[in-house]
Write a protein that binds this DNA or RNA. Structure first.
Length: 696
DNA sequence: AGCACGCCGACT
DNA sequence: GTCGGCGTGCTC
């Protein structure tokens, strides 16, 4: 008796190979089993997807025999395979690409024997797990949210302001689950690696170190394999991780938490461009696991999808659980708008803001100033001939980093020492234009050089951004310095606005947030509002500290548009008002969440070649059923049109129906593969489809 | 994606 | 005369 086994292997999307490759086997291989199979001249890891019994008689084609079956490991279950299959289909990628990316990288290199040995070693330690009860009393809002969570099916949108105690709700929900069903598993996702350690600590404290494993790209390969195996075997109760964790194999999954669900990092931006938040909701429904999406500023998609009260059928499918109040007495910080139109021209820091920071210094409190631009200045320019520090490989300026006197391209990494004189005309007068965090740090240093702290010492200014935290452990040590009070004024990018609890900060300032108000990206206001709300949440987290100081926590915003509805809503901490306004605009303009989008992008040596491919692709789509219900916009260059000498162009597709858009995309895929072999496809370096794109 | 094959410039 | 550049093509 012989079998044909269909195996998902890592076939790249461009290869136009089928979703699965078929191999011969003398025995049936269980779907979901990990196998090693020959592919070309090498042997690769694959996941058995289906087994077909071959009729006796001559085989149509001679199949290569399957290699080793890694049967020390339980096969990936059907629910997991369904999730992978759905993600592959929805995001227009191959099955194998998603499946293999979802497995720990080390599994690819391990032989069957090595894996068996590893598993034997693992089994020896026995994890006893005890849930330590929590002494903290719940607020009325938390109690209400939890009881509705227990009573209803969800999915739930936990709309809780910063400091309202969302994490405690997650912990209780997990605790209740494990009390009811000790062998159950919960998946908890956070947007960034930086945020895992403190959450991990809280979960381990509550549920025991052995019950919790982490899964994110900052871990070493052996660590990731160990965590993955613990999840897959069911030994781990709680898996805590970043977006990749949505694909963790968890046979007893009953609960999924997506914290800060609005965060853009849940959308993968390269390779398979999936949204871990959306997949989490899909997975929850498929596996009957309850899903909680938590945020103080939900994505407009989730907000639109949620209904405010029980039994209210208006709105969407999500149950909205609101926790508007901060725990304890800490009031939300007062928002102060500085009208920059009334300031002297070229003001960087208004006098009123400087005064407020000075008062904080005098009282021994901390301030945080953020600016979304790292480096010293975004451009270096020649006053004489107009030369600017363009990157020779990208359509962008190289940023001036004063610290090491370099010009660095933030897109391709091209770095050179700053020229002494203008490379065009030899003029020595080349000057930085605009400012980044480095220059802001320097500027603040000058402004406060003469100021003394209460004990007579000099004011201490620190900066946290991607440059200052490049080294391993640098972020942790810099955060620790802020926590221990070694810093008076902290300067940084949005990195400092997310998640970290700075208890002694009583002032947060956004220096120049206006860029996002009128940018071409329709999601920019949503991101700005969320960022400012989160930043405001950094101030005065420690209510006891703030009131003991007699201080008021404040969020300062310098803007040329103080009447902008975004700021008006922010001033009142009124996310619902902001969301309503944005949703009305989106509805009127026929944009998400009222329409569904996809991008086709092409990269080539020249813009013409890239656009010609998109043009041909557009024409090819005419023939597809449903294409009349999909608006196809003309091909345009990307905002940054050239990166590392590659020209990039894209076209947008939009439809009121997700299903129709999906159907068109699915039908398009083979046509796009064919196009590559036509004259219009020659010279295209790569093309890719981005479903539900985040930035367009 | 890998990893081959395949046809043109600077080296022992 | 070879070593090696990366252009094109294939992988059940």
């Amino acid at each position: 008796m012989s079998w044909r086994i269909d195996v998902a292997v890592q076939t790249p999307a461009h290869s136009a190979l089928g979703d699965v490759l078929s191999y011969a086997s003398g025995v049936r291989v269980t779907p979901g089993a990990l196998v090693r199979v020959p592919l070309g001249r090498r042997e690769v890891l694959g996941v058995a997807w289906a087994a077909h019994q071959e009729d006796a008689g001559p085989a149509a084609v001679e199949l290569k025999p399957i290699g080793a079956v890694l049967d020390a490991l339980a096969p990936l279950d059907e629910a997991w395979r369904d999730l992978v299959a759905f993600a592959a289909r929805y995001y227009q990628r191959s099955l194998g690409e998603i499946a293999l990316a979802a497995l720990p990288p080390q599994l690819r290199d391990l032989s069957a024997v090595q894996l068996a040995r590893r598993l034997k070693r693992k089994r020896s330690d026995s994890p006893p797990g005890g849930v330590s009860p929590c002494a903290v009393a719940l607020s009325a809002e938390q109690t209400e949210a939890l009881s509705r969570f227990e009573a209803e099916a969800g999915p739930f949108l936990l709309f809780g302001s910063t400091g309202s105690g969302k994490t405690e709700v997650y912990l209780r929900a997990v605790a209740a689950l494990l009390a009811r069903e000790p062998q159950a598993q919960a998946l908890v996702m956070v947007p960034e690696i930086n945020l895992t350690p403190q959450l991990e600590a809280r979960f381990k404290e509550r549920f025991g170190a052995d019950s919790v494993v982490s899964l994110h790209s900052g871990m070493t390969n052996p660590q990731r394999l160990a965590s993955w195996l613990a999840a897959h075997s069911g030994a781990a109760r709680i898996v805590l991780g970043t977006r990749m964790a949505v694909f963790a194999s968890m046979p007893a999954l009953r609960l999924i938490v997506v914290d800060e669900e609005h965060d853009p990092s849940y959308k993968q931006q390269e390779g398979a461009r999936y949204s871990a938040r959306d997949l989490a909701v899909w997975r929850g429904r498929r596996e009957s696991a309850k899903v909680i999406l938590g945020s103080a500023t939900p994505s407009l998609e989730s907000w639109h999808q949620s209904r405010p009260a029980a039994g209210d059928d208006a709105g969407g499918r999500y149950v909205r659980l609101s926790m508007p109040s901060r725990i304890g007495t800490g009031a939300l910080p007062r928002v102060r708008l500085v009208d920059m139109n009334l300031q002297p021209p070229k003001t960087v820091l208004s006098a009123a803001l400087l005064d407020a920071i000075g008062q904080r210094i005098a009282r021994g409190e901390q301030s945080m100033v953020f600016l979304n631009r790292r480096g010293y200045a975004p451009v270096l320019a020649c006053a004489d001939c107009g030369w600017k520090s363009e990157c020779p490989h990208c359509s962008a300026y190289r940023v001036f980093h004063k610290i090491d006197r370099t010009l660095r391209c933030h897109h391709c990494g091209f770095t050179e020492r700053v020229p002494r004189a203008c490379p065009e005309c030899g003029n020595l007068d080349i000057a930085p234009v605009g400012r980044g965090t480095e220059r802001l740090e320097e500027h603040l240093g000058e402004l406060f050089a003469a100021v003394r702290r209460p004990d007579g010492s000099a004011v201490r200014i620190a900066r946290i951004d991607a440059d200052s935290t490049r080294k391993q452990g640098a972020l942790e040590s810099q955060l620790a310095a802020v926590h221990s009070g070694e810093v008076d004024v902290l300067v940084g990018t949005q990195m400092i606005a997310k998640g970290h609890d700075f208890r002694r900060i009583t002032l947060v300032a956004a220096i120049n947030p206006d860029g996002a108000l009128f940018s071409g990206d329709f999601r920019a206001p949503e991101r700005l509002f969320s960022l400012l709300m989160q930043s405001a949440g950094r101030a005065g987290r420690d209510a006891a500290y703030v009131s003991a100081q007699g201080a008021t926590a404040e969020m300062w915003i310098q803007t040329h548009h103080p009447q902008h509805p975004l700021f008006v809503a922010l001033k009142r901490h009124d996310y619902p008002a902001f969301a309503q306004g944005e949703l009305e605009d989106r509805a009127a303009a026929g944009m998400p969440p009222f329409a569904f989008q996809a991008l086709l992008r092409a990269d080539a040596r020249t813009q013409e070649v890239a656009q010609a491919f998109l043009g041909a692709a557009n024409a090819a789509a005419d023939a597809l059923a449903g294409s009349d219900q999909v608006t196809r916009y003309p091909a345009v260059p990307l905002a940054i049109q050239r990166v590392a000498n590659v020209e990039r162009a894209q076209m947008l597709l939009e439809s009121a129906s997700r299903a129709v858009l999906q159907r068109v995309l699915a039908g398009w895929q083979p046509l796009l593969h064919e196009l590559r072999r036509t004259p219009e496809g020659k010279g295209v370096i790569r093309w890719l489809v981005d479903v539900d794109p985040h930035s367009i």
